[in-house]
Amino acid sequence: MTDAILQSPDLSLAADSNRVLNYKRDPQNYITQLFGPQFPAIKNGFFNVHVSKGIIVQPHWHTNVTEMVIVISGEVVTSVFNPFTQKLMTYCLKPGQVSLFPKGWFHWIICESDHAHILTVFDQPTPDIVYGSDFLRSIPKEVMQRAYCINEEDYAKAVAPIRESVILGPPPGCFQNTMGVQQAIYTGPYA
């Protein structure tokens, strides 16, 4: 078996995974990446995810990859929906612990500590990502009413704040603490 990349005279077997910023919510919550375009010799790919308490890697799924989450520092909760058992599988992870999201399974990650760092490693050099935010805002209110008997106007109002892909949430300014209860309040465009 011949691998043209490994035979290249320009071969490099090292790269800096901090050079390419994939997404930045704020200085404490951001994602960098290392995939095939940045490092041709890599046969997988990964995100460096830096998050703080209360931040969620939004619900999503991958059409072409299985994802492994490795906690480097901090604590996170991973959840994945098993389409075969119709049950949610949730794991509380600390440094050195791992969870897996099979290809096509809906999942998310919630940060439970400040300054958490996780790696999400994929079994292919570049993942396809379908964000729940895009899916929700794209479903016509009439379809939700017909499929689930959800009031059309209630659904339209509920998804109105989702104007673009949400990657790390909640959006800044979304929560307001009222009498000890967290309430979602949309206060402007997503950052």
Rank of each mutant, 00 (worst) to 15 (best):
F84C: 14
V71S: 08
L119W: 03
E112V: 07
F106H: 01
V69W: 10
I129S: 13
Q145E: 11
G74V: 01
A147E: 03
L93I: 05
F135V: 09
D123H: 06
F122H: 11
L88Y: 15
V80N: 00
Q124I: 07
I118K: 00
T90C: 10
P83A: 02
P102K: 13
F106Q: 00
G104C: 07
A147Y: 05
Q145G: 07
Y155R: 01
R146T: 05
I70K: 12
T85V: 12
K103S: 11
V71I: 08
V71T: 10
L100I: 15
Y148H: 10
M68L: 05
I70P: 00
T120S: 11
H107K: 10
H107V: 12
G74E: 01
S138R: 08
S99M: 10
V121L: 03
K94E: 13
P140S: 10
A147H: 04
E152V: 14
S79F: 03
C111P: 03
F106R: 00
V76R: 02
N151L: 08
I150E: 02
V65L: 11
E152D: 15
V98K: 04
N64K: 08
I72K: 14
Y155T: 06
V143A: 13
R146E: 09
K87D: 14
E75A: 08
I110W: 06
I118L: 10
G96R: 08
I139T: 10
V98T: 13
Y148M: 06
K87W: 08
V121P: 00
I150S: 05
V130F: 06
M89F: 06
G104I: 02
I139C: 09
F122A: 01
T126F: 13
L100M: 12
E67M: 01
V71H: 05
F81T: 04
F106D: 00
I118E: 06
I129K: 13
R137S: 02
I129C: 08
V121I: 05
E112L: 14
H117L: 06
L93M: 06
D123W: 02
F122M: 06
Y155H: 08
I118R: 00
K94H: 13
Y91V: 15
Y131N: 01
I139Q: 09
K94F: 14
E67Y: 02
N82M: 13
T120I: 15
Y131T: 00
F122N: 00
L88Q: 15
N64F: 09
E142F: 10
M89A: 15
G96Q: 11
I72M: 04
M68N: 09
T126V: 15
T90D: 07
Q145P: 03
V143F: 01
M89V: 14
I118N: 00
A147N: 04
I118W: 01
I72W: 12
P127G: 03
P127M: 11
G96A: 13
P140N: 12
E75T: 08
I129Q: 10
H115F: 15
S113Y: 07
I150K: 00
P95S: 14
V130Y: 05
Q97C: 04
Y155M: 03
V80P: 01
P127W: 02
I109A: 03
D154S: 05
F135Y: 07
V77S: 11
Y155S: 07
H107E: 09
I118Y: 01
K94N: 15
N64G: 13
L119F: 12
